[in-house]
């Protein structure tokens, strides 16, 4: 798919943030987001995700470092940079007494775009908000309010969209809708950077994944490469008769005996070789005349990878 080399659309170099409280929220972050991708930023609470997004979007001042968004330095050339960026913040902050229609048109104007009712209508329809256009935002449900925030962020047709935990507190159905919407946006060429606590979300959607912990990026990887590299498949085979030791014919460093010799556990690295590895083992067990009663295959999820990565750090 990626035939031409990826074009960086957001380049972050040496980004530092120390809050007035003295807390060092970002410790020299370097990050490149590629044009047209969905980039998921994963990290535990307080890792610095919102701070990072805040700096790129102009809400937080960096202590040091540079950010280039779509070719424009966010400090020197803030107008051009910000005009390209849309932000859906983590906190639901809305004008309760405004109608959806007014609020979204206001956002478009604020970002320097001329009035265009057709465009705003298109955005509202895409988010299933058209029927609610004359409703006061305060009267909408939480999920609907979040859609309004997304509509506001999209009203000026940004090329980069930041979604800070877009599906926090959103029910399953709405979350699916949100994912669909994000994919549609990507098809239209919008680059999407999202943060999330739901690893299944990153697994489901992201092209690349960055993991941030205690203000440092500890990993940036293409999702499939990440799963390949760090994913594990564990095949557990329940034996009919206990074994004292692994027979020499089966000797394999990936194979272990557990449960009083009644269980064989094969741990395979990477995503691809799982099924093949299981089939091989079964064949060899048959050849050895070892009977078994159960076979269980468990693939580690991104969640396990993530817990592994962050958990190992001090």
């Amino acid at each position: 798919m990626a035939s031409s080399p990826p074009r960086p659309i957001v380049s972050i170099k040496g980004l530092e943030k120390t809050y007035a409280s003295g807390h060092r929220a970002l410790k020299g972050v370097d990050l490149e987001v590629h044009a047209g991708e969905i980039f998921a930023l994963l990290g535990p609470n307080g890792a610095g995700k919102t701070t990072l997004i805040g700096i790129v979007c102009g809400l937080v001042r960096a202590t040091a470092g540079t950010v280039i968004a779509d070719g424009h330095d966010i400090a020197q050339d803030y107008r051009a940079a910000r005009a390209k960026i849309g932000l859906v913040p983590q906190e639901l902050a809305t004008d309760m007494f405004e109608t959806v229609w007014h609020a979204v048109n206001f956002s478009r104007g604020l970002f320097g775009k001329p009035r265009d009712h057709a465009k705003v209508e298109e955005v509202l329809r895409a988010l299933s908000l058209w029927d609610k256009r004359n409703a006061k935002i305060g009267a909408l449900s939480g999920g609907m309010k979040r859609r309004v925030l997304i509509a506001k962020a999209l009203s000026h047709e940004p090329s980069i969209l930041f979604l800070d935990e877009p599906t926090a507190g959103v029910d399953v159905e709405l979350r699916r809708d949100m994912w669909d919407m994000v994919r549609r946006l990507r098809e239209q060429g919008v680059t999407i950077i999202l943060t999330t606590h739901y690893i299944e979300e990153a697994e489901e959607m992201a092209d690349r994944i960055g993991v941030i912990d205690q203000g440092e990026i500890i990993l940036i990887e293409e999702k499939h490469a990440l799963m390949e590299k760090l994913g594990r498949t564990r095949i557990t085979i329940g034996l009919k008769e206990p074994l004292a030791a692994i027979p020499p014919m089966l000797a394999d460093e990936r194979l272990a005996l557990a449960g009083d010799g009644r269980t064989l556990v094969l741990t395979l690295m990477g995503e691809g070789e799982g099924a093949q590895g299981a089939a091989d083992l079964i064949k060899r067990l048959g050849a050895e005349g070892i009977d078994f009663t159960t076979i269980d295959t468990v693939k580690s999820s991104l969640e396990d990878i993530f817990v592994d990565l962050v958990g190992k750090r001090p």
Binding site: R79, A80, L87, T94, L110
Partner: peptide, 14 residues
């Protein structure tokens, strides 16, 4: 107070 200021701060507005 309500937090909606984020939008002004993130906008290309002097």
């Amino acid at each position: 107070f309500t937090g909606t200021i984020y939008e002004l701060l993130s906008a290309p507005v002097s």
